[in-house]
């Protein structure tokens, strides 16, 4: 058994034990920055330790993602290339999370005597419609990027990718703006059943936009130096379109209904 481990050793003629640092690093990052930090902040009200574990966890998280991505891109000939077949399964899971959230919302809403319950301010539909336009255009711009890539035009791909990301950021900005506005009107998370559903569902969707943007960063950074993994590009795109489609349900259920 040859002892040159890692994904660095290309073209080994015999099998060797594969290994990688990054899964562990990534997990440690997640562990420190989510459960541990959350526990310190919200359960034990200890901001110092909370910040400390966030401060330790976040760099680990970023390092893990960066290392993982670059290892993947460097060794793409060794990856079996089933990423695009695995992602749809994962998306099935995601769909079910959203479904559970919507089901909870329906249960709250359909058993309520009056809806929206007392204490709900007016929630405008103009902003969400603008956000819809933004998100849909971002899906289209990404598609343009992918077409450019198919023609081998990497520069144009990068450009479209950045446009997409900018649109995603604007979308998140809109969310923040809206939340800020509503919170100022005294519509806190726990105000009533409507706020409960509203913030949970839109917030959960926004977190998915954030993850999508994160995936784009993983595409963009190597792409700027000319390294492009097609399965990563396709996968990030697929995820983005999924997030886009979920938004339609969010708008129709939360804002328009």
């Amino acid at each position: 058994m040859a002892d040159h481990g890692g994904h660095g050793a290309a073209h080994a003629h015999e099998h060797h034990w594969e290994w990688s640092y990054y899964p562990l690093i990534l997990v440690l990052g997640i562990f420190l920055s989510v459960p541990v930090a959350f526990g310190f902040f919200f359960q034990y009200h200890n901001a110092t330790l909370g910040i400390a574990s966030l401060g330790l966890g976040t760099p680990l998280l970023l390092w893990g993602i960066a290392g993982w991505t670059s290892e993947g891109i460097a060794n793409r000939d060794k990856e079996p290339g089933w990423a695009l077949t695995g992602l749809p399964f994962f998306i099935v899971s995601e769909i079910l999370i959203f479904l559970s959230l919507f089901a909870s919302y329906w249960m709250l809403r359909l058993t309520a005597d009056v809806w929206p319950p007392a204490g709900t301010p007016h929630i405008g539909v103009v902003l969400p419609l603008i956000m819809t336009v933004i998100l849909v255009s971002s899906s289209i711009t990404y598609h343009f990027g992918e077409m450019a890539l198919e023609e081998g035009n990497k520069g144009s791909f990068n450009m479209w990718l950045m446009v997409t990301m900018a649109l995603g950021l604007v979308f998140l900005g809109c969310t923040i703006f809206e939340y800020n506005h509503l919170l100022h009107e005294g519509f806190g998370f726990g105000a009533n059943a409507k706020s409960t559903a509203f913030y949970s569902i839109t917030g959960f969707h926004a977190s998915h936009v954030l993850v999508g943007l994160g995936a784009f960063v993983c595409v963009l950074v190597p792409a700027l130096s000319g390294k492009i993994s097609h399965s990563l590009v396709k996968g990030a795109g697929l995820y983005w379109h999924f997030v886009d489609i979920v938004w339609f349900f969010v708008v129709s259920q939360i804002y328009l209904w």
């Binding site: 919200f42 726990g190 409960t196 949970s200």
Partner: peptide
């Protein structure tokens, strides 16, 4: 931790 009311019947939860 955030005071929402999914399971709080007083605020319309279940």
């Amino acid at each position: 931790y955030f005071g929402t009311a999914f399971f709080n019947p007083d605020a319309g939860g279940d």
